[in-house]
């Protein structure tokens, strides 16, 4: 298991917000990806300690990316980033092995709690 966090979201704005929250609290962000394909490739490459994974994305959605990552590393620590109303998708993700989820718009405390608990 490597170090640092991989952020996956198709919106650069969202990546920036998450990065801001994490870095301000001493976490290291080692990569960003803007779709599922890129995310899986970076995941294999960087072996991040944690992935923050958006669900709705082009190329390959978060659920599919999650499954690929879990197939690569069954212990992968992945937190889904979802929006309200994506309940069933979040549940699908959890079944597939996601460790936690956070809901947009992000509350920094919530993000940090999830990250802290999952990385423990």
């Amino acid at each position: 298991m490597g170090k640092g966090i991989l952020i996956v979201d198709d919106a650069a704005f969202m990546r920036m917000v998450i990065r801001g929250i994490l870095e301000k609290n001493g976490y290291e962000v080692i990569g960003e990806a803007k779709d599922g394909k890129e995310a899986v490739a970076l995941f294999c490459d960087l072996k991040p300690a944690l992935v923050l994974l958006d669900i709705t994305m082009p190329e390959m959605d978060g659920i599919e990316a999650l499954k690929k990552m879990i197939a690569e590393d069954a212990d992968a620590k992945i937190i889904m980033c979802s929006a309200l109303g994506q309940s069933s998708m979040v549940i699908e993700a959890i079944q597939a092995g996601a460790k936690d989820y956070i809901v947009k718009p992000f509350q920094p405390d919530r993000v940090l709690e999830a990250v802290k608990k999952v990385m423990k």
Binding site: G31, E32, A33, K37, E38, V40, A41, L42, D45, P58, E59, M60, D61, I63, E64, S88, M89, E92
Partner: peptide, 30 residues
């Protein structure tokens, strides 16, 4: 029911964007 969205979404995506469009090699970050 609800999952129809997901399922349809995936097929649509799979059909529309050919796999080979972007090589799965090492993507450059940022």
């Amino acid at each position: 029911g609800a999952g129809k969205t997901a399922a349809v979404g995936k097929t649509g995506q799979g059909a529309g964007k050919p796999e080979g469009k972007k090589a799965m090699g090492k993507p450059v970050v940022n």
